[in-house]
Design a protein around this nucleic acid. Structure first.
Length: 891
RNA sequence: AGGCUCGUAGCUCAGGGGGAGAGCGCUACCUUGACACGGUAGAGGUCGGCGGUUCGAAACCGCCCGGGCCUACCA
């Protein structure tokens, strides 16, 4: 065996084992396997992306599940891949072009797309390497990209098929337009932000000269496109004006005063200017009127004013125009006032540019019929959302869902499979490029210039990545997938749409569970963002503390329903844990002698400590399994942490040292037990800390495996389960532990040197105690540095002794010559006071008739026992104090 | 405006009807042959406030205060 270094350093280790796993093909799924499937599709990161904390958490949690299931014997497939991120990627490449003084229109569509692919090959997919360094055990042989040939075919199939079923249609209405990205966006791609703006009050003179009507607006520049002023029909103030005309300032146009219920008489002046072409509300009002109001588009796709805005304003940027309009109104004496006003503005989720509602012809998915089934799937628990509280979010969105605008005016993406006939205007939607018009047989066909929303293709991800529409073995074996692990921010973008599409095209849910994990924030709870400058780069953390410590920290933080506040100190803390494990392993391996790693260890030949640690190992394994089954990653991590540090290291390793350093018959059994426990511990921990566990495990196995037939890697070693518990040794061990801690408390509280061996007398209070202690004196000697002088149930406390009073026993430490007795008296008085508090609390409770009558019997019984126990304890403490005072008097 | 969520040790957070837990930090002592990235013993908390339900509330319910988030077409 190679000598292990004194402390663990991850450098080199991580790369080595990742390469080893890849070479061994351990990540690769076998659809032909007999074992039950467990499959996960990664939420595909953007091709433009680089690893952030969110990815790190997301990937770590999936990897934990996947490694755990793989070790548990399931046929595991974890599909990785990336999303082509239409708008984001196009933006990146357009910026690149701009720096060369070119724009995409100059370049032309084909050349541009070629350029994006080139970019993708060169820079895209950085994140894939980063996922690998996190340890992600994805099946890279099945990596997919949303613009792959296969996935593109799936997209076309779905589009055409939905169109055939009347679920995709084309319509002209207001859309969310990003003037910078130059494309339409769906409702959920728009972010709302509360900002302080201004509410401008403008006078619109009545055309008949009889006064004016004041309207209030946050967007004065749109007045140039007003086609009405609306008031509430019930509003007495304006009732007479309905039907009259007003003169629209700065334009000379005359527009009517109309009535509409949507107007809130209590807001502003109670009169609203109506700009149907630039406001969603106004559009609705316009369409409700009969005849419908006119739409005048005064702002163009680039965010500047159109000719229709008037010669003075045409070509102006919309914000410059706002200033100009206000100035002009003021000049004409029509500006009533401007007041500060808090309101929310809509911005593009990619570039934060303020959205401009524009009227345009776009493609839509008719969503209600799809949503109904998707709602039902969650309602009937065919799909479980964990934590359950996110179901509310899902339902409330799905219940109020609007049709999905899926066309984007960009080039990078799946081009819409629709063609327009130049001769007759027919729209032909087709899986293949049509040769001639289906209506007039004209050959002058032009394909739609637009591409589909990126999310349209990612909605198909759970089955398109498995080969659909082909009937592949993968699809057969691994659909539906087992779980989707993701953040809440994309419940709408994906989860909901994946469910709709899965149900529609596979007639089956896409995943059984949806695990919604937290958002990673900075230490003060702020969302990490580049603009705030509070981003912590996971790669730097991994470099600094090691990937294992980082992953473990994420897992420990990942409690359900709460966001993660990331703090570097905790990563450091868990790096210490990695090092602790490393050193414990180092100890075990260097003290295992010639022992082989046994496949099982029989309890009968083991000492108490070994039986105890075996039982505790079993307990930890059970806890971890239950926790992982319920996606309680933090609890699973906590269990193994506690086991390794506070049971294996603090107690077991310490207590077997005397055995290992001597030549007793028990020695080999202990060595085997140590190896066995280490082996199982590493396997339990492996899903959380893949690298260090592999590194140690390989050292452990070298030359020590009884059989050489398996064990190439810990990642395919069986996950421990159903190990045997042993209640008796746990019970016995707790007697030892209590006793040891009693002696240590005396030592610590009285400040006796750790190197000083103490003479100890023990009075046993339970029948079994004496026997247990007598059989295990060696542990007391080692763990408490105590020489036990006498044990007995009628033992008298030696004069001038300190005492520790426990449930099973009282421990006496004669202090003669060790220190002054005053200190011990003081300490005991503190204990007495504590006991008094407990006694008074419990007696109040036990004197309460209602409690005795109504509380469950076993609780009452337990409280009574506690009370009795406490009374006895107090008596004993008093006794000790008395004796010490006596002794002091004699001194 | 609705909805969700959080408030527990100095800090970051678990827990959850039967007198409070972890990590880090802090104090004292300790270079004991795995580990000072360590060991032992401690200190430290009216579990945000007020009501209610209950024999019993930090936990369940209501209100309030204070954070955070998500939805929504009040111009």
């Amino acid at each position: 065996m190679a000598e292990l270094n004194k402390s663990y350093s991850p450098q080199g280790v991580e790369e080595k084992w990742y390469a080893y796993w890849l070479a061994g093909g351990y990540f690769i799924a076998d659809p032909g396997a007999d074992s039950a499937p467990y499959s996960v599709v990664i939420p595909p990161p953007n091709v433009t992306g680089s690893l952030h904390m969110g990815h790190a958490l997301n990937t770590t949690l999936q990897d934990i599940l996947v490694r755990w299931k793989r070790m548990s014997g399931l046929s595991v497939l974890w599909i990785p891949g990336m999303d082509h991120a239409g708008i984001a990627t196009q933006n990146v490449v357009e910026r690149q072009l701009a720096s060369e003084g070119v724009d995409r229109h100059k370049l032309g569509r084909d050349a541009f797309i070629e350029r994006v692919w080139k970019w993708k090959d060169e820079y895209g997919g950085k994140i894939i390497h980063q996922l690998k360094s996190l340890g992600a055990s994805c099946d890279w042989s099945r990596e997919r990209f949303t613009l792959d040939k296969g996935l593109s075919e799936a997209v076309i199939e779905v589009f055409v098929s939905l169109h055939e079923q009347g679920l995709i249609y084309r319509d002209n209405r207001l859309i969310n337009w990003c003037p910078r990205c130059h494309t339409a966006l769906s409702d959920i791609e728009v972010e709302h932000e509360e900002l302080e703006g201004r509410l401008t009050h403008i006078r619109y003179p009545l055309a008949d000269g009889g006064g004016h009507i004041v309207v209030a607006t946050t967007r004065p520049e749109t007045m140039l496109g007003d086609t009405a002023v609306a008031v509430n029909p019930e509003d007495e103030r304006y009732r007479d004006m309905i039907g009259k005309m007003v003169r629209l300032p700065l334009t000379g146009r005359k527009i009517p005063v109309i009535a509409d219920d949507a107007v809130d008489a209590g807001f502003g002046t109670g009169a609203v200017k109506v700009t149907p072409a630039h406001d969603f509300n106004d559009e609705a009002i316009a369409k409700r009127q009969s005849p419908p109001l006119e739409f005048i588009t005064v702002i163009g796709p680039d965010g500047s004013m159109t000719e229709a805005a008037g010669r003075r304003y045409a070509g102006m940027d919309r914000y410059d125009c706002r200033k100009t309009v206000i100035g002009d109104l003021e000049h004409e004496g029509l500006l009533e006032k401007q007041e500060k006003y808090q309101h929310s503005i809509s911005q593009c989720y990619r570039c934060k540019t303020v959205i401009e509602p524009l009227s345009a012809l776009q493609w839509y998915v008719k969503i209600k019929p799809l949503a109904e089934e998707a709602i039902a799937a969650v309602r009937n628990n065919r799909i479980t959302i964990i934590p359950k509280t996110w179901e509310n979010t899902y339902f409330s969105w799905m219940d109020n869902i609007n049709d999905w605008c899926i066309s984007r005016q960009i080039w990078w993406g799946h081009r819409i499979p629709a063609w327009y006939c130049g001769a007759c205007g027919e729209v032909i939607v087709s899986r293949t490029t049509p040769a001639k018009c289906t209506k007039c047989a004209g050959t002058e066909l032009r394909q739609d210039e637009d591409v589909l929303d990126t999310w349209f293709s990612s909605a198909l991800w759970p089955f398109s990545t498995l080969g659909w529409p082909e009937k592949t073995p993968e699809l057969q074996k691994y659909y539906p997938t087992s779980v989707l692990v993701t953040g809440f921010d994309i419940i709408f973008f994906w989860v909901a749409r994946m469910i709709m599409m899965g149900l529609k095209f596979m007639t089956e849910i896409p995943f059984r569970d949806v695990y919604i994990h937290a958002l990673v924030r900075d230490a003060s709870g702020q969302k990490m963002s580049k603009s705030k400058g509070n981003v912590i780069d996971p790669l730097i953390i991994m470099e600094k503390y090691g990937t294992d410590a980082f992953r473990f920290t994420l897992a420990v933080f990942a409690a359900q329903g709460r966001d993660v506040r990331f703090s570097e100190e905790r990563v450091e803390g868990y790096r210490h844990f990695v090092n602790k494990l490393w050193n414990a392993s180092r100890f075990i391996l260097s003290n295992a002698g010639e022992a082989k790693l046994p496949e099982t260890v029989g309890f009968e030949r083991l000492d108490l400590g070994s039986r105890w640690i075996m039982s505790r190992l079993a307990a930890a394994a059970d806890e971890m399994r239950i926790s992982l089954e319920e996606y309680r990653f933090n609890d699973a991590a906590g269990s193994i942490y506690h086991f390794i540090w506070h049971e294996l290291c603090d107690w077991y390793i310490e207590m077997v040292k005397p055995l290992l350093y001597s030549e007793t018959e028990d020695k080999q059994a202990v060595q085997e037990c140590l190896l066995y426990v280490l082996d199982n511990t590493l396997r339990l921990l492996h899903p959380f800390m893949p690298y260090v566990t592999e590194e140690i495990w390989q050292n452990l196995c070298e030359g020590r495996r009884m059989k050489e037939d398996g064990g190439k890697s810990i990642m395919i070693a069986p996950y421990p389960r159903s190990l045997a518990r042993d209640a008796e040794s746990e019970e016995e061990m707790s007697v030892i532990m209590e006793t040891v801690m009693g002696i240590r408390t005396v030592r610590g509280e009285l400040n006796l040197s750790p190197s000083l061996e103490l003479n100890v007398y023990i009075r046993t209070l339970l029948e079994k105690t004496g026997d247990i202690l007598n059989r295990n004196l060696i542990y007391l000697k080692k763990l408490a540095k105590a020489e036990v002088k006498a044990i007995g149930d009628d033992l008298k406390k030696p004069k001038g002794s300190a005492a520790a009073v426990r449930k099973y026993a009282e421990v006496y430490v004669p202090l003669e010559g060790l220190l002054n007795i005053d200190l011990e008296v003081e300490r005991l008085k503190k204990e007495e006071a504590k006991a008094d508090e407990t006694i008074s609390f419990l007696s109040r409770k036990l004197n309460n008739e209602d409690f005795l009558k109504r509380a469950p019997k076993d609780i009452v019984e337990k409280e009574r026992e506690k009370f009795d126990e406490c009374i006895r304890k107090k008596e004993r403490i008093r006794e000790h104090i008395g004796k010490l005072c006596e002794a002091r008097g004699e001194q």
